[in-house]
Design a binder for these strands. Sequence first.
DNA 1: GTAATTTCTAAACCTAACTTGAGGTCAAGG
DNA 2: CCTTGACCTCAAGTTAGGTTTAGAAATTAC
Lengths: 151, 151
Amino acid sequence: MAISEGLAIGALARRTGLAVSAIRYYEAQGLIAPWRNAGGQRRYQRADIRRLSFIMIAQQFGLSLPEIREVLSGLPGNRTPTPQDWKDISVGLRAHLDKRIATLTRLRDNLDGCIGCGCLSLPKCALYNPDDRAKTYGSGPRYLMGDAPEA
Amino acid sequence: MAISEGLAIGALARRTGLAVSAIRYYEAQGLIAPWRNAGGQRRYQRADIRRLSFIMIAQQFGLSLPEIREVLSGLPGNRTPTPQDWKDISVGLRAHLDKRIATLTRLRDNLDGCIGCGCLSLPKCALYNPDDRAKTYGSGPRYLMGDAPEA
DNA sequence: GTAATTTCTAAACCTAACTTGAGGTCAAGG
DNA sequence: CCTTGACCTCAAGTTAGGTTTAGAAATTAC
């Protein structure tokens, strides 16, 4: 394949470690937008490798695909993050992560305070706090603590 | 209702804050086993309030329902955890939690080290570690980091 | 004794993030 | 020309943890 023709989906999959089906799914979710060649096949830019890497990393931080889409669409021209963009975005991701860690740490401290107290059945136990528990989102499944969307 | 007849499912739901449907679902998953009255309705012991509380707390620690079922079934006579049982179980839960926190903290440290380095597209970036990413479990959805079953 | 609640079962539906499968097209090698 | 492999679309399946719904039976309240 000539250089100017871009990457086929299989090549992109091999470069990123993602499944082909996942890449197509991300496209359906509006996270990536390849063009089509004469035969109707998807062709990707080299920068899309970075874009997919970004998506994978953001997922590790607990961002949902819609959230990632928003972050990406906030960039000028909806471009793949440059190093400077990444620097800016990192600050927000770090806050997100700090929040998750804080929640879990609080949970652990409560657990330590509770070990052996035998209060398990009491509404006043710090571990037994309904407001702190996972909340329903729509009519779907519950989210584990710290994985719930912030909005 | 007479004292000896036990709690109806609605009463148990009000006491625990769980939905009636959730309690029935837990029964289907083998987490709780009520008896039936003459009319075929479920009746619960007072201790089942504690049992459900335990389930809710364990969920916050990231345990899946099958994992919780295992913990509960490990108790003598499959009884609801007593304060002493709880003390013993807590140690295991704390280890579980420590692991999740450690993973997230490592992720955060990597992020800090990466801010501004511009390496986002490189396989050698610490954030871009496939082994660290969510793994497929069966043919279903992926699990977010730290939520994956340990086994 | 009747009305209003509650409960029952079973099956269908829900979200997120994908995967799998069916049925068909496209491109390259021999 | 033919085969092989990669690609296409669209629909349905998967997992976790439940909720919703429908129609019937049991309980409770007045």
